[in-house]
């Protein structure tokens, strides 16, 4: 995929007056305008039902907005179809709250899937899977059937799958919801590492412990509206 003007200029995600509602009259997002820079780590916070998950799904274009413009890496998502959309998604790592894991497959197969679709070498895939499992302290689960794992372990596998293909944009929904403090720290390390190596990371969460002392931008949503934006602090 070619990087065009917008990403060269430093904007990875651009939303202009984006709204989304579900029948009969549930407003999920109302008139959101937002720019996320390339290489930024960005927090979206808010209570359940604030619209965080909907916004993430629209950025990966798994759901289209009712109105407004969404651009990712300079591409207007409304204009992307077929292979072009697929190629863009290969560059977006996604970890949703509902995991979307294949519970009858092994842990390794679940993580490998994001690399298989971009035709990575089997040896390269195996090496990367082992490395990620090591970072998340799940090395012994390589051949375990995913359905046999705990919720917390499944959450980490989802995260491993999201970062496996070295995406340029990482969308993570409630990454620490089922985790203890120690594992939360390890997950945040993994996300920070991805960010340090150039990926734009967008984290939707209501877990205050992971953004309380953050120096990154924090946007707060409430019932589909942006209610505040805390700017990044310069260290």
């Amino acid at each position: 995929m070619t990087t065009n003007n917008a990403s060269v200029n430093g904007t990875m995600v651009e939303l202009i007056k984006v709204s989304k509602s579900y029948p009969p009259d549930v407003v999920a997002l109302d008139n959101i305008s937002l720019s996320i820079n390339t290489g930024e780590l960005f927090f979206m916070i808010g209570k359940s039902g604030a619209g965080k998950t909907t916004l993430l799904k629209m950025i990966s274009y798994m759901e289209p907005p009712n109105t407004g413009l969404i651009e990712v890496a300079g591409h207007d998502l409304r204009r992307l179809r077929g292979n072009k959309l697929a190629k863009l998604r290969q560059r977006i790592g996604v970890a949703y709250q509902d995991f979307k894991l294949l519970l009858d497959r092994t842990v390794a197969e679940n993580i490998a899937i994001s690399m298989e679709v971009s035709y990575k070498q089997p040896s390269q895939i195996q090496k990367r899977v082992k490395n990620l499992l090591e970072q998340l302290q799940l090395s012994d689960k390589y051949n375990t059937i995913t359905g046999e794992l705990s919720r917390g372990e499944q959450q980490r596998i989802t995260l491993a799958r999201a970062v496996a293909n070295s995406p340029t944009l990482l969308l993570v929904d409630e990454p620490t919801g089922n985790l203890d403090a120690e594992t939360t720290g390890r997950v945040m390390q993994l996300l920070t590492k991805a960010n340090n190596s150039g990926a734009t990371v967008v984290i939707a969460t209501h877990d205050e412990s992971i953004f309380r002392n953050s120096k990154h931008r924090i946007m707060e949503l409430d019932r589909g509206r942006m209610v505040s934006m805390k700017e990044a602090t310069v260290s």
Partner: peptide, 11 residues
């Protein structure tokens, strides 16, 4: 999931 991770329609 395949769509989500960027599998092409041909794939």
């Amino acid at each position: 999931l395949l769509k989500l991770v960027g599998a092409t329609n041909n794939y």
